[in-house]
């Protein structure tokens, strides 16, 4: 659990981060979203003490971070930055092994861990471990950056615009993969982005920052349903609120049982798809309802146009 209490950082006369308090629960993904210059990166970098707060308290699992030597603290926290920051003079395997080496792990344990992580990130160890960063594509570099952050099995991972350098198609795949990895490892993640869609897609909780202050910190649903501030509504895009809401609901969760009296729908969506995708499919096919299919492809229920529209209504 990460707890920030009244955290403030001044540069000269200007408060870049101004009295921020928030709590990130264990295993959650908190996304800090804001425009450039809103102070979101500085906030993130205060958690692993790359920047020291001017005042306020930051604690991890109840322990004040300022009591731990900065480099020791950082070895226990994963850190991923935009443009990956891979060491160009080291192979992929050596890059990933950075923190375990700093921690003095035995050699065979490091080797095992490196191939484990390469597998986890869908990079074949045989092909990639000996390569240098410049030999990889942008997406591969980004994945190596994530693997390096996860190498020592940190409970907390900080990510500063981790997908910023990726093109849109790879980016959404990378986002899905991150979600899956987090579900598997149960790490607490704090991610900084300027992309509102990314925030809604990834965040269990979202903190909207502007001019150094957190305007609102809450679940995506709260954010749309009860914006605490007109600026939040503006940032989240009030006009798109309905669609964002639909994007948060999985078709499987919204499915109704089949009505035996009507014939089964001719088109279907997978249970993992969002209602936003279901709506698009309904509009496109001109049908009034869709079958929802499970992982095995068998129908588990249906969604109707009316029920989708109901989900999108302002709560």
């Amino acid at each position: 659990m990460i707890r920030l209490e009244g955290v403030t950082r001044f540069y000269g006369e200007r408060a870049v981060v101004d009295d921020v308090s928030l709590v990130v629960e264990k295993g959650e993904m908190a996304v800090v979203v804001g425009r450039s210059g809103s102070g979101k990166s500085t906030l993130l970098r205060m958690i692993n003490r790359l920047v020291e707060p001017t005042s306020g308290l930051i604690s991890i699992d109840g322990r004040d971070v300022s009591t731990v030597p900065a480099h020791v603290l950082r070895r226990g926290i994963g850190y991923v930055i935009q443009g990956h920051g891979l060491f160009p003079h080291r192979t992929v395997a050596d890059n990933i092994a950075t923190v375990p080496r700093l921690l003095g792990w035995p050699r065979d344990r490091i080797a095992r861990r490196v191939s484990e992580l390469l597998e986890l990130l869908q990079l074949s160890p045989a092909r990639f471990s000996g390569q240098y960063p410049h030999q990889l594509s942008g997406g591969e570099q980004q994945r190596v950056g994530v693997a390096r952050a996860l190498a020592a099995g940190p409970d907390i991972v900080l990510m500063d615009e981790p997908f910023g350098a990726l093109d849109p198609i790879i980016r959404s795949k990378a986002q899905d993969d991150l979600k899956a990895i987090q579900a598997r490892l149960g790490a607490t993640i704090v991610l900084v982005t300027h992309d509102m869609d990314e925030a809604f897609r990834l965040g269990d909780r979202i903190a909207v920052m502007e001019a150094g202050r957190v305007l609102q910190y809450g679940t995506p649903r709260d954010m749309i349903a009860r914006p605490a501030d007109p600026r939040v509504a503006e940032l989240t895009g009030s006009g798109e609120g309905a669609l964002r809401l639909l994007a948060l609901v999985r078709a499987g969760d919204a499915a109704e049982p089949f009505d035996a009296s009507t014939p089964p729908p001719s088109h279907s969506v997978p249970a993992g798809a969002s209602l936003r995708e279901a709506l698009a499919s309904l509009l496109w096919t001109g049908e009034g309802e869709l079958a929802v299919t499970g992982d095995d492809g068998r129908p588990v229920g249906r969604v109707t146009l009316a029920s989708v529209l109901r989900h999108g209504r302002s709560p």
Binding site: N48, L50, Y79, I81, H84, L102, R148
Partner: peptide, 8 residues
């Protein structure tokens, strides 16, 4: 930056 963040 990454080197710092890794705890070097």
């Amino acid at each position: 930056e990454a080197a710092r963040g890794c705890g070097m």
